[in-house]
Structures are given as structure tokens and as C-alpha cells.
């Protein structure tokens, strides 16, 4: 027992572990809250699309020899607005708009990587994340941006719920739905760029979709869904970082697989507990 607690104390004493746990928890929190909103609005794959733009942004950063976050963040936020505008104005379904922006991001990234040569290995590390190598500066910016996302969701909580449930009713009750939608996709853009550091470009959408899907199996209300999603998401990141360090496993994949395990457990539990109930209550 004492060996174990020493082990944990020692584990927590590492600066890079502290940084990873703190930044990871904040990012996991905002991913889960936005995920609940995005999944219910059938925008699950916006995270996937924007992470592909992040790929293009990182490639551009490496190509120009600029810190990749500086390039990715504005590029992804701009692209998120592009998706919204395409879906709104171009008589196009949201998923097609996501597909277009996403493929431009990937193609541009591959093109830049090919022209630039030499930085393929760096680019590869962004594909699967490297939270254990997060810098103090990145931790600080992650916390600040996470607090910004969190504050916006809390402030506009009722408006967001109204729009998510029934956008037309929301507009008819005087809510400026255009402004809220714009805010939401911009926040999603910021979140996706931050999440890249935790689980990598390839797995970003998992952190948006899985905690929300777990929550929907068990939730007794919308607020309740957000709480469940937040708890499973933050716990998965903390446990994933710990497990991956102790057992020498890839961190991003550990986090995502833990989230997937939570989802399967919640799904199984919900199926079993629903069976005896009659369909009409």
C-alpha cells in the first residue's frame, strides 16, 4: 500500500505530469460540454473536419517556421465560420460543408508537407498528440482558452439549450440564434486546436463525441447530461495519462479507449435497465 502511494506521489511530482494533468483536465472539460451540444445538433463531425484543418494549419506553421498553434488557431476558427456560412448560405447540408472544409485542410497540409520536405516527422507527432510534452506556455494558454469557452457556455446556457432543442422556437422567443451559432462554432474551433495536443488530430472528434454519448445513455436532463459528460471526460484524461505513463502506452489512444470503455459500460447498463420498463409511460 505504502509503495503504491509513494509511487503516486512521485508520479505527481513530475512537472510534465502536472502540466499534462492540469491542461488535459481543462481541455477534457470543455470538449465534453461542447460535445453534448454538438452531438444533439447533429454536428458531431464538425470536430473531425476542423481537426483536419488543424493538420493544414500545423503544416503551414512548420512550413513557415512559425509556432504551429499561432497558425492553426486563427485558421481553424476562420474555417469553423466558413462551415457555418456554407451550411447557411450555399443551400448545403452541414455535413457536406464540413466535408468540403475538412478535405481542403488535409489536402493543403499534405501539399505543404510535400513541398517543404523535412518536417514530416514533426507533423506526424501532431497526428497522435503529445500531452506529456506540453510546455508551461501551452498549459497557460490552454487554461485561459478553456475558461473562455466555459464562461461563454455558462453565460449563454439557456439560449444554447433553447437553440439545441428547437432553433425555430428559439428565434421566435427573441434569441439572436445567428450570434449564438457563430459563438458555438468559434468555441468549437478553439477547442479542437487545444484538443490536438491531448489526443492528436486523428482522435480529436472522439473527445467531443464519446463523453456526450456516454452521458446520453444515463442522463436525467440536459444539465445532468453535461455533468456526466464532464466527469467521464475529465476522469478518462486523468486515468489515461496515468495509465499510459505507468504502462508505457500511447497517451492519446489510452484516453480515447477509456472513454470508449465508459461508453460501452453506460450503453450496456442503459439497455439492461430499460428492458423492464414499458415503452409508454
Amino acid at each position: 500500500m505504502s509503495m503504491n502511494s509513494i509511487g503516486i506521489a512521485e508520479f505527481l511530482s513530475y512537472g510534465f505530469i502536472q502540466r499534462a494533468l492540469i491542461a488535459g483536465s481543462f481541455i477534457a472539460l470543455i470538449c465534453s460540454l461542447l460535445g453534448v451540444i454538438l452531438v444533439l445538433r447533429r454536428l458531431s463531425l464538425i470536430g473531425d473536419g476542423l481537426s483536419h484543418v488543424t493538420f493544414g494549419g500545423v503544416a503551414l506553421g512548420l512550413f513557415l517556421n512559425v509556432y504551429p498553434l499561432y497558425v492553426s488557431l486563427p485558421l481553424v476558427v476562420f474555417s469553423s465560420l466558413g462551415i457555418l456560412r456554407l451550411a447557411d448560405k450555399a443551400r448545403m447540408y452541414g455535413d457536406a460543408a464540413i466535408g468540403i472544409v475538412s478535405s481542403i485542410g488535409i489536402a493543403a497540409g499534405v501539399m505543404l508537407a510535400s513541398i517543404g520536405g523535412g518536417f514530416n516527422i514533426d507533423l506526424f507527432s501532431y497526428l497522435f498528440g503529445n500531452i506529456l510534452s506540453i510546455s508551461e506556455y501551452e498549459v497557460a494558454s490552454s487554461i485561459m482558452l478553456s475558461l473562455l469557452v466555459l464562461a461563454t457556455i455558462v453565460f449563454y446556457f439557456n439560449e444554447i439549450l433553447s437553440i439545441t432543442f428547437d432553433e425555430e422556437f428559439a428565434r421566435a422567443s427573441g434569441i439572436n440564434t445567428g450570434r449564438i451559432n457563430t459563438l458555438l462554432v468559434m468555441l468549437t474551433g478553439i477547442t479542437v486546436v487545444l484538443t490536438m495536443k491531448v489526443v492528436g488530430i486523428m482522435l480529436t472528434s472522439a473527445l467531443l463525441i464519446l463523453p456526450a454519448s456516454t452521458a446520453f445513455q444515463l442522463a436525467r436532463g440536459f444539465r445532468n447530461a453535461m455533468v456526466i459528460a464532464a466527469i467521464t471526460s475529465v476522469f478518462s484524461v486523468i486515468a489515461g495519462i496515468t495509465l499510459s505513463f505507468m504502462m508505457d502506452l500511447p497517451t492519446g489512444a489510452s484516453i480515447v479507449l477509456l472513454n470508449a470503455a465508459f461508453f460501452l459500460a453506460a450503453f450496456t447498463y442503459a439497455q439492461r435497465s430499460r428492458k423492464p420498463a414499458s415503452p409508454v409511460r
Binding site: L161, S162, F165, D166, I175, F216, R220, G221, F222, A225
Partner: peptide, 24 residues
Amino acid sequence: PQKIHFLNPHFPSTVAEIVSLGLV
């Protein structure tokens, strides 16, 4: 609104949460 606007039967909201949307 007409009933048709309510499309997602799995939406995780309580009755109280939905009714309070009339006060947003």
C-alpha cells in the same frame, strides 16, 4: 409551434427544462 418541430425523441431534457425555455 406545430408538433412536427419536435423531432428528436432522445433529447435528454426534463419537462421543467423545456418549459423554462419559454422564459429565455
